[in-house]
């Protein structure tokens, strides 16, 4: 499911604004100055406090202005495995001739704000990371764009109703779970097993790569994480069946299934997929594995 590209133009009608704690401190400062001016009947102290008060009012407009006119659009979010961070890519477009300073984007209070400057007529891309723990559709909380420019006395913000969601695959099982033996042909499986030894090269580690295939020796030498690549299993054809994935709970069984799909795909096998009523005929390639993983995610 591709998320339709959607953009939001920030307009003062939708921007909320409230003084920050520092802004309230500033009000207290003005009050104190007024008190001094009153006690000593000093017009210049009055003047200074009026100046600061006027600045306080003017700042409201400037803080709203620092967001107004920005156009925020969201990009496509790639599916992830549970436990990984899902990222939502958003683009902040500043089509106006004024630079925007310290625009902050955050998801909620617990997550760190990302602060960026957006030069005039330029775009900035941001990645918002969401923690995932469950498989299925993750509805990403709408991020809040805010700004305290120029003096930090006010915070203007708008919640961006991007309504992005991302598909979360089950977490691949961490346990050692060899691919199921196929009763349709011992021989083929044998081939497959043999094929695993048909090592043809190293590839740098990517999320989802089987831990079993990590080239530990290289890692121990401090050369980074590499995955061994195998060839020669093209002819193997197996069935990945939910019924064969043995574990205590449904989620763990789905995890095992996920692991199998990844391992089989990596090994370049042709595999069929059977999950409850869903049967996917043996096939291989990215599209096929994606279909399988989606089925697992949404089971």
């Amino acid at each position: 499911m591709s998320s339709a590209s959607k953009s939001i133009a920030l307009n003062y009608r939708n921007i909320y604004i409230l003084p920050t704690r520092r802004g309230l401190g500033f009000v207290m400062l003005i009050a104190l100055l007024l008190l001094i001016a009153f006690i000593y009947n000093n017009n210049l102290v009055y003047l200074l406090s009026f100046l600061l008060a006027s600045l306080f009012f003017i700042t409201i407009l400037h803080t709203v202005k620092s967001l107004q006119g920005l156009v925020i659009s969201k990009g496509h979010s790639e599916p992830v495995f549970a436990g990984e961070f899902a990222s939502s890519k958003i683009t902040l477009n500043n089509p106006t001739p004024i630079e925007r300073y310290s625009v902050q984007v955050g998801i909620n209070k617990h997550m760190a704000l990302q602060t960026i400057d957006i030069p005039a007529q330029q775009k900035q891309r941001l990645n918002l990371a969401y923690k995932t723990d469950k498989r299925g559709w993750l509805v990403m909380a709408n991020p809040v764009i805010s700004s305290c420019y120029p003096f930090g006395l006010f915070r203007a913000w708008q919640r961006l109703n991007l309504d992005s969601k991302v598909l979360v695959y089950p977490m691949p099982s961490m346990q050692d779970c060899p691919l199921p033996e196929n009763n349709q042909g011992q021989e083929q499986l044998g081939n497959a097993q043999k094929g695993q030894d048909d090592f043809y090269g190293l590839q740098s580690y990517q999320t989802g790569d089987s831990i079993r295939h990590i080239h530990w020796r290289a890692f121990a030498k401090g050369q980074g994480l590499f995955t061994r690549q195998y060839s020669g299993a093209q002819s193997a054809e197996i069935w990945l069946d939910y019924e064969q994935a043995m574990a205590a709970s449904q989620e763990e069984r789905l995890s095992i299934m996920c692991r199998w799909v990844l391992d089989a795909d990596e090994a370049g096998m042709t595999y069929g997929f059977r999950l409850a009523g869903l049967i996917l005929e043996p096939n291989q390639g990215e599209a096929h594995s994606k279909k399988c993983l989606e089925a697992l995610a949404l089971f």
């Binding site: 009055y46 003047l47 009026f50 006027s54 009012f57 700042t59």
Partner: peptide, 14 residues
């Protein structure tokens, strides 16, 4: 610049 913009309000307040 901001201070200059604040001046009209300041004068009125004064």
């Amino acid at each position: 610049k901001l201070l200059a913009q604040a001046l009209p309000l300041t004068i009125i307040l004064f």
